[in-house]
């Protein structure tokens, strides 16, 4: 098996009394798209900063591209921080070339690549515009191109979809997949599960500074039981219908959703037919990453709440 591109063990980071990250371990295989998921303030950004050597962990170790000193391999890494930043007085192509130069790409080559990549994204017209004149979405795409211009082996994207319109989100997803096809390893953090579900081979869910889950998207989804979506006839009486359905059934948009009963859906179907409620639609579905995320993060919240109450008591 190939050596992991990122191997972090027991990362701990406290800011004064605040515990930002507590013992997070990650292992990212070469060529993977790896999602670091979590709610706001979960410790995702702090974890990524520690992986990149921007800040030092209080405890734990980290190897990046085989090196125990992440900064020594900075030229092989591309990074899009959560807080976007460009010099307003520079043009788009100069900004990209500058970011490439910081990572060792000669400036003339950086300018050539900047022009080419902006043209690919349909942003050729913006190449010579000052950053201050670009829209937020365009600035973000410029910064993303800047993070990728030197063809890094490892790409770390912190909340890359935030602030992008659907068209640019789609464009960004294609860029990420293209980079993966090129052979790069990608780590992205997000709290929008739809992107993670489409892009990621593996995910780590971090909540309260701790890693709560690590595995494939399918592994995460498999943590939840199958769900049922049932749409009765319009004439069905809701009160009598609810009496027949499992206790966790919830109605939304004329549709009932509940966990698949242990004895399957057939007895329920028979009862519905017998009760003259009819079946306009019925499907059995595996819950998405979103539901798995909510469950995992919700449990963390409950645990923390209980701990807080215990302390208060």
């Amino acid at each position: 098996m190939d050596q992991p591109v990122v191997l972090a063990e027991g990362l701990v980071k406290h800011f004064g009394a605040y515990r930002a990250v507590e013992g997070v371990s990650l292992s990212v295989a070469p060529g993977a798209v790896y999602g670091v998921l979590g709610p706001n303030g979960a410790g995702k950004t702090t974890t990524l900063r520690m992986l990149l050597g921007i800040i030092d962990p209080d405890l734990g170790s980290c190897r990046l591209l085989g090196s125990p000193r992440p900064r020594s391999v900075a030229t092989r890494v591309g990074y899009l921080p959560e807080e976007r930043g460009l010099y307003p007085g520079m043009t788009a192509r100069e900004s990209i070339a500058f970011m490439g130069a910081l990572r060792g790409l000669p400036r003339p080559e950086g300018l050539v690549r900047a022009d080419a990549r902006l043209a690919t994204l349909g942003l050729a017209h913006a190449a010579k515009q000052k950053v201050r004149r670009l829209s937020k979405g365009m600035s973000q795409m410029v910064q993303l191109v800047g993070a990728l211009v030197h063809d890094p082996e490892l790409i770390v994207l912190d909340e890359p979809f935030s602030g992008l319109d659907p068209v640019n989100q789609e464009r960004l997803e294609r860029m990420i997949l293209a980079e993966r096809d090129r052979g790069a390893t990608i780590i992205l953090s997000t709290h929008v599960m739809a992107h993670a579900q489409r892009l990621c081979d593996r995910v780590a869910i971090i909540a309260g500074g701790q890693r709560r889950f690590e595995g494939t998207v399918e592994d995460a989804r498999a943590m939840l039981p199958l769900g049922v979506r049932y749409r009765p006839r319009e004439s069905a009486d809701a009160a009598s219908l609810a009496a027949l359905l499992p206790s966790d059934a919830q109605q939304r948009d004329g549709e009932w959703r509940f966990t698949l009963p242990d004895d399957g859906v057939e007895p329920l179907l028979a009862a519905l037919v017998a009760g003259h409620h009819g079946v306009e639609g019925l499907s059995i579905e595996r819950p998405g990453l979103h539901e798995a995320f909510v469950k995992i993060v919700g449990e963390t919240h409950d645990e923390r709440h209980a701990a807080t109450m215990e302390q208060a008591a």
Binding site: E83, L86, Y87
Partner: peptide, 12 residues
């Protein structure tokens, strides 16, 4: 303008 993190990540 938040460029500091880009600098800090790329160079010492």
């Amino acid at each position: 303008n938040k460029v500091i993190e880009i600098l800090a990540a790329a160079v010492p």
